[in-house]
C-alpha cells in the first residue's frame, strides 16, 4: 500500500465524515465549519491526484471564500436553525417515515444512487495504471487557460462580475423600507453585506 493510497483513504474518510456532518449536525454554524473541513479534504485529494494548482484554488475559493461567506451570512442574518434540521438524520428519518418528501424516499434515492454508481464502477473496465505525473502541471494549466480556454475564461469573468453586481443589488437596503417592515430599523452593520 503506497503512501498515496494511504493519504487518499485518510483524506477520503475526513471528507465523507465531515460531509455527513454538514447534513446531519444540529447546529447550522457547525455544519458550515464541517463544510470547510470537507473542502480541505477534497483539496488534499487534489494534491494526491497531482493537481497542485487546483488544490490551492480549492483552499482559496472554497475554504477561504465560500465557507467564510456562508459563516458570515449565518452570523449577519442571525439565523437559527430550523427544528427539522436540528435532529440527527436517523431520528428525522424515523420520525418522518410516512412523509413522502422527508422520509424514506430521499434516503433510498440517495443511497440507491451511491450504491448503483459503486456497482457500475466495479463492473467497468479501467485503465490499469496512470501514466506517471510529469512534475508540476501548473505551467500546462496556465497555458491552456490562456490559449484554448480563453473564451470560457473571459465568460467566467463576466459571470463573476454579474454575480457581484447582482449580490450588491440584492442586499442593498432601499432608502425607503417596505411598508410592512417600518418597525425594524436596519442596523448600520447590515448595510455592508453586499460583497
Amino acid at each position: 500500500m503506497s503512501l498515496d493510497l494511504i493519504s487518499f483513504i485518510v483524506l477520503g474518510i475526513i471528507t465523507l465524515v465531515s460531509g455527513y456532518l454538514v447534513v446531519a449536525s444540529a447546529n447550522l454554524m457547525h455544519a458550515a465549519l464541517f463544510l470547510g473541513l470537507s473542502f480541505v479534504g477534497v483539496a488534499g485529494i487534489y494534491l494526491v491526484l497531482g493537481a497542485e494548482f487546483l488544490a490551492a484554488a480549492q483552499i482559496l475559493i472554497y475554504v477561504g471564500a465560500i465557507t467564510t461567506l456562508i459563516v458570515f451570512g449565518i452570523m449577519v442574518s442571525n439565523l437559527q436553525d430550523l427544528k427539522a434540521g436540528g435532529r440527527g438524520v436517523w431520528a428525522r428519518v424515523v420520525r418522518n417515515l410516512a412523509s413522502f418528501r422527508r422520509g424514506l424516499v430521499p434516503l433510498v434515492a440517495a443511497a440507491g444512487f451511491a450504491i448503483l454508481m459503486l456497482v457500475i464502477y466495479r463492473q467497468s473496465l479501467w485503465p490499469a495504471e496512470a501514466p506517471p505525473a510529469s512534475g508540476s502541471n501548473l505551467a500546462t494549466v496556465g497555458r491552456l487557460l490562456f490559449t484554448e480556454y480563453v473564451v470560457p475564461f473571459e465568460i467566467a469573468s463576466v459571470i463573476l462580475l454579474a454575480a457581484v453586481l447582482g449580490a450588491v443589488a440584492l442586499s442593498r437596503r432601499d432608502d425607503q423600507p417596505p411598508a410592512g417592515s417600518t418597525g425594524q430599523a436596519a442596523p448600520a452593520a447590515e448595510r455592508k453585506e453586499g460583497r
Binding site: V105, P106, F113, L116
Partner: peptide, 22 residues
C-alpha cells in the same frame, strides 16, 4: 411549487434509470 419535490422526482428517475442499466 416545492422545488424539492421536483428534485426528488428527478433523483428517483435517475436512480431508477441507473438500476435498469445495472
Amino acid at each position: 411549487g416545492l422545488v424539492q419535490s421536483y428534485i426528488l422526482a428527478m433523483a428517483v428517475t435517475v436512480v431508477l434509470g441507473l438500476a435498469i442499466f445495472v
